[in-house]
Amino acid sequence: TTVKLGDIKVTFDNPEKAKKYAQKLAKIYQLTVHVHGDTIHVK
């Protein structure tokens, strides 16, 4: 599962960890989390 934020891409083996990371980023940057299959976009 890949978390994308602009040019930053972080890949996790564990989808749950990816989701938590995405939510953490979203909170920090006051953005929202969008899940598209294996990719989680923070924008």
Rank of each mutant, 00 (worst) to 15 (best):
T1P: 04
T1M: 12
T1L: 08
T2M: 08
T2H: 09
V3K: 02
V3D: 02
K4Y: 14
L5V: 12
L5P: 02
L5R: 03
G6F: 08
G6K: 06
D7K: 15
D7M: 14
I8H: 14
I8K: 09
I8C: 15
K9R: 12
V10L: 12
T11D: 04
T11Q: 11
F12G: 00
F12Y: 01
D13Q: 11
D13K: 11
D13M: 10
N14M: 04
N14F: 05
N14L: 06
N14W: 06
P15Y: 14
P15V: 11
E16P: 00
E16L: 09
E16V: 09
K17E: 14
K17I: 11
A18S: 00
A18Y: 01
A18M: 02
A18D: 02
K19W: 15
K20V: 08
Y21R: 02
Y21Q: 02
Y21E: 02
Y21W: 12
A22S: 02
A22L: 07
A22H: 01
Q23H: 10
K24D: 08
K24A: 12
K24E: 09
K24T: 09
L25H: 00
L25D: 00
L25Y: 01
A26K: 05
A26I: 05
A26F: 03
K27A: 10
K27E: 13
K27Y: 11
K27Q: 10
K27P: 03
I28P: 00
Y29V: 04
Y29M: 08
Y29K: 03
L31F: 06
L31R: 01
L31P: 02
L31Q: 03
T32S: 10
T32C: 14
T32G: 06
T32Y: 08
V33N: 00
V33L: 10
V33I: 13
V35Y: 11
V35S: 05
V35N: 04
H36W: 10
H36C: 15
H36E: 15
H36N: 12
D38N: 14
D38Y: 06
T39R: 03
T39S: 05
T39F: 09
I40H: 02
I40C: 06
I40E: 01
H41W: 12
V42K: 01
K43N: 08
K43T: 14
K43W: 13
